[in-house]
């Protein structure tokens, strides 16, 4: 589908076009030549090409768009309602024989690390049940969150953040083709904000160019502020300055309107707090204790918004006793 969205328009279709990740690509090409592959586990941060590589690999193995469509299924573990619906979809997909002369179908399960350990064990059994006619490509951010029995059944490939130079080059190529007017600082700002996430970089470029006639640093920072990491910072700063109600509003906005899960917010909170240069270390230590508790409670079934609001109230209290610091 030829979208006007650039991440889709400039998505590499074959393994040869994937940027960076050379080691991974070399190994995968071996599978294409033999037209056989084990189960695979792709681990790495967002926007580094895991999904794209899975698609490209399947494309190269099956050899045509038609066969790819018939033999390839993509599921996202965090968007599906539990392992039972995943099982049903896999069952329906796997029950017909593979089309063409490749003897297996490919199931790409994205965000596999969002499954609980129990669900992963169920997944392992599903993988075994259909192993005669299917291969799984699991993708995750952290391979440590995937249970051992699954890891040991997969060939594991690690995707690193895309180097700044490669991100810049890709952005310039797209800007050229799309006739985007930009400044050097504008592109640098995107590279900086994206932190090796090429997808985010491309999306930022497109948002910025849709919003202003010229992509400069100011537009980029404003656009970047729309996405959540900046809002998480805003929320922390509001709490540290004693503005609890504003902080709680931001929290609810993140969760209800942006659809961030409590776990996402916790992850971001942790990152921001740990990396902060202005929050004193002893306060950080206390916050680590609270955050780990919040994280645990939420996994056990407590309401994320309540637990996180309690955490914000703690931030207000600690902020007060430390003279209202803010994140840098």
């Amino acid at each position: 589908m030829a979208f006007e969205l650039w991440i889709e328009k400039y998505r590499p279709r074959t393994l040869d076009d994937i940027v960076d990740q050379e080691d991974v690509i070399r190994a995968l090409k071996g599978f294409v030549e033999k037209r056989s592959m084990p189960h695979l586990l792709f681990a790495g941060p967002a926007g580094t090409g895991k999904t794209t590589t899975a698609l490209a690999l399947a494309h190269d193995i099956y050899g045509s768009e038609e066969l790819l469509r018939a033999n390839y299924m993509e599921l996202n573990a965090s968007d599906e309602r539990g392992i039972d619906t995943i099982r049903t979809k896999i069952k329906d997909f796997a029950k017909t024989a593979p089309f063409g002369d490749v003897p297996f179908k490919i199931i790409h399960l994205d965000e596999a690390d969002s499954l609980t350990a129990d669900a992963q064990h169920a997944l392992r059994r599903i993988m075994e049940m259909y192993s005669a006619t299917t291969r799984f490509i699991l993708a995750c951010n952290y391979s440590s969150k995937i249970i051992e029995p699954i890891q040991s059944r997969c060939a594991v490939f690690r995707f690193g953040p895309i180097p700044e130079e490669a991100v810049r080059e890709r952005l310039l190529m797209i800007a050229e083709k799309e006739g985007v007017k930009y400044t050097e600082e504008g592109i640098s700002a995107i590279v900086y904000v994206a932190e090796g996430d090429l997808r985010r970089a491309i999306n930022l470029l497109q948002t910025a160019s849709a919003m202003a006639d010229e992509v400069d640093a100011k537009v980029v920072y404003r656009v970047a502020g729309l996405a959540h990491p900046e809002e998480v910072r805003g929320m922390i700063n509001a709490a540290l300055k004693g503005r609890f109600i504003a902080a709680r509003d931001m929290l609810r906005n993140l969760m209800i309107n942006y659809g961030m899960s409590a776990q996402d917010v916790i992850k971001q909170l942790n990152r921001e707090i740990i990396a902060s240069k202005s929050i004193p270390d002893n306060m950080k230590a206390q916050l680590m204790v609270f955050l780990s508790e919040v994280d645990f409670r939420v996994t056990e079934g407590a309401h994320g918004d309540v637990q996180l609001a309690a955490m914000l109230a703690k931030l207000v209290e600690l902020g007060e006793s430390h003279g209202g610091p803010s994140l840098d």
């Binding site: 589908m1 979208f3 969205l5 965090s78 849709a210 729309l226 996405a227 959540h228 942006y258």
Partner: peptide, 20 residues
């Protein structure tokens, strides 16, 4: 589905493009 992305990424990265 069309973009091979999690829905939360669509919300955070694609929706701003569409709005603009």
């Amino acid at each position: 589905k069309e973009l091979h992305l999690p829905t939360k990424t669509v919300r955070m990265e694609i929706v701003p493009i569409l709005i603009a």
